[in-house]
Design a protein around this nucleic acid. Structure first.
Length: 598
RNA sequence: GCGCCUGUAGCUCAACGGAUAGAGCAAUUCCCUUCUAAGGAAUAGGUUGUAGGUUCGAGUCCUAUCAGGCGCACCA
């Protein structure tokens, strides 16, 4: 795909320079896009309209032809087109060129060009879609990052699922990727837990994650009526920072309990994060980073605290007036640590963290550059939007969160129910395949519903949407793939889907539906690249959904297995296989598995 | 008060400054003796919050304005 669009751009450039006088025109100036409406061709360029405007503003001598011939952008487009038609290289892959109304130049590619994609998919299989030119860049993704002593809520699901998809996406296109779970295991909230445990004389080892969260919630409630409690919490945290044995013990137990619980979710979700350097490990590095900032005169004293000032942002607090560190300090220490550790050091550092921390990260990244820790642009904050309930915002402290456990359970149960209704008997339900499928469907639905939204937008949680298994859903894609697999089996494929697909299909006269599907398949690679570039897994979702929709329409209107015409039959099997393969590859980027049966 | 983000169909969301603003859900109809109906076909639903501006062309860019969200020095 890439080669053809590059070729067209080059030819366009050549044609343009014949028609108009342009100084060192940049190839980036040429925009080629896929028209939204397929009747406008496979590629379209607006170069004539762009150039016309520029030349109108400059001297009339820019035109090599008299002004009275090229009066409108459309005239210019026509002139460029007639140059292009002399180009022999382009005629190898382009069937038709047209110049239309306001000044678009549209390119229609040859059918045989698209059909090549089918054999590519056959040979590349689960690698299909990965970039041809491998990037040597290394990328670190910080994601999930739950807070210790709080239950995993649907809020954290967002970072976990999107982060994992970004991780998979970059790995798929050939980058070296490392994931880091930046656990929230340090800070004043532990002062609250410790204070509460000590006051009530509880044995920390008996406490579940639920209990810990309750302590935290209750403490915050009491805080409203008894402000003195805050002092107790900060004192306890200071003791913890100083290494008080009792405090340390409580803290450690709370961390262990939480991690054990989190790991269950990660396992269920199929999430694997390479490292989990919690905030606490950066504790030792704080004095160093603070000293550096003060020595370099980046931080300055103000009202008893140390702050960093910027000319275009509000100041950030580095050290509180009581001497305590802030999360800015920790994030800077984290960056330094990562850059100094060979296994973490990367070219790009990606933070999958909520949008409410936008300002904070701008400050962190800027400060990092001031410190000589790379450039501001080496750091990317994928700021995901807020997840709200219809009645307002979620808050652990107020206790109105939706528990991840509840969400996943409901989803799996729903999948089980549908499976059972469909064809199953009670006996089937006991089989391992059944529960495995239910799990994959249930988890897949939740993940997909999270990923299909553009990361940056806020969205409102509702149960119906979150558990959706119809229409634009993970289940729809899984279903399409499962259905194709069964079709191929019925047509005689072996378990590993071996078919003799070496035929050349260009002789066949395909329907528009079929050609449409082939064209969509041919865009997978560039879609993956775009999704990676824009840090937007949702682009994969909408692409896969479109593909599946087109295929299902086709599936419903034709039959394949009983066909007599062997070569046409083979084409349709190959097409079906390809759709299945691309759905499989796309879903695996999203972290969604395809069940045995549905 | 200042800054950032959002406002698109009844609901939830799409749409590199491009051509007739698209999907899903919900609603109303159809299609299982045909490879899995978690599917398909069709209908209806819109002055893209409002008012100006920039240009060949604006949901997208600029200005103003309204509404909501999030930040803005001791919570992370």
């Amino acid at each position: 795909m890439q080669e053809v669009s590059d070729q067209i751009k080059k030819s366009l450039l050549k044609a343009v320079s014949v028609v108009a006088r342009i100084e060192a025109p940049a190839i980036e100036k040429i925009h080629l896009e896929h028209p939204t409406d397929a009747s406008h061709g496979d590629y379209s360029s607006n170069i004539a309209m762009v150039l016309f405007k520029e030349m109108k503003n400059n001297a009339a001598s820019d035109f090599k032809k008299p002004r009275n011939i090229l009066k409108t952008p459309h005239d210019l487009a026509l002139a460029i087109m007639s140059e292009l038609q002399k180009d022999k290289v382009i005629s190898e892959s382009v069937e038709k060129i047209e110049a239309v109304k306001p000044g678009f130049i549209n390119f229609y590619l040859q059918k045989s060009y698209f059909l090549k994609i089918l054999s590519e998919i056959m040979s590349e299989r689960d690698k299909f879609g990965s970039a041809k030119r491998t990037s040597k860049r290394k990328i670190l993704v910080e994601y999930s990052s739950p807070n210790i002593a709080k239950q995993f809520s649907v809020g954290h699901l967002r970072s976990t699922i999107i982060g994992q998809a970004i991780y998979n996406l970059y790995k798929f296109i050939g980058c070296e990727v490392v994931g880091d779970n930046h656990l929230g295991d340090w800070g004043t909230q532990f002062g609250m837990i410790i204070a509460a445990v000590l006051e009530k004389g509880l044995d920390i080892k008996d406490l579940t994650l639920n209990d810990l969260e309750k302590l935290y919630v209750d403490f915050n409630k009491k805080l409203e009526t008894d402000p003195d409690l805050r002092k107790k919490a900060t004192d306890a945290f200071v003791s913890l920072e100083k290494g008080d044995i009792k405090c340390r013990e409580i803290w450690k137990a709370a961390v262990d309990t939480s991690l054990a619980e989190f790991d269950k979710f990660y396992k269920l979700l199929g999430v694997k994060i390479d490292y989990a350097y919690g905030e606490s490990i950066y504790e030792k590095m704080m004095p160093g980073i603070v000293k550096l900032l003060i020595d370099e005169r980046i931080a300055q004293k103000s009202e008893g605290a140390y702050v960093i000032k910027y000319n275009d942002m509000p100041p950030a607090m580095l050290i509180k007036s009581d001497g305590g560190t802030t999360y800015l300090t920790r994030d800077l220490a984290t960056i330094k640590f990562r850059r100094e550790s060979p296994h973490l050091h990367s070219d790009i550092y990606v933070y999958e963290v909520g949008a409410e921390q936008k300002l904070h990260f701008r400050q962190v990244f800027r400060t990092a550059e001031m410190l000589g820790l790379g450039k501001e642009s080496d750091y990317v904050h994928i700021a995901h939007g807020f997840l709200r309930l219809p009645e307002g915002k979620m808050s652990t402290r107020k206790g109105n969160t939706i528990k991840l456990r509840e969400l996943l359970e409901k989803s799996i149960i729903k999948a089980e129910k549908i499976l059972l209704d469909k064809s199953g008997t009670e006996k089937d339900a006991k089989r391992a395949v059944f529960s495995d499928s239910a799990k994959k469907i249930g988890i897949g639905a939740v993940k997909y519903n999270e990923l299909k939204h553009s990361p940056s937008t806020d969205y409102i949680f509702n149960w119906e949407e979150a558990l959706n298994m119809n229409g634009d859903s993970g289940s729809y894609l899984q279903y399409t793939a499962v259905r194709i697999r069964n079709l191929l089996m019925k047509a005689g494929a072996k378990d590993n889907m071996t078919f003799n697909f070496v035929q050349v299909f260009s002789e066949l006269s395909l329907t528009n539906e079929e050609l449409d599907i082939v064209k969509i398949l041919s865009k997978f690679r560039e879609k993956v690249e775009e999704a990676a570039f824009r840090f937007s897994p949702n682009l994969i979702c909408s692409y896969l959904f479109l593909l599946a929709q087109k295929y299902n329409t086709f599936y419903n209107s034709t039959s394949i297995v009983p066909m007599r015409d062997t070569s046409y039959r083979m084409f349709r099997l190959n097409l079906s296989f390809s759709v299945m393969q691309v759905i499989t590859n796309g879903l695996s980027i999203l972290g969604i598995e395809i069940p045995e049966s549905m």
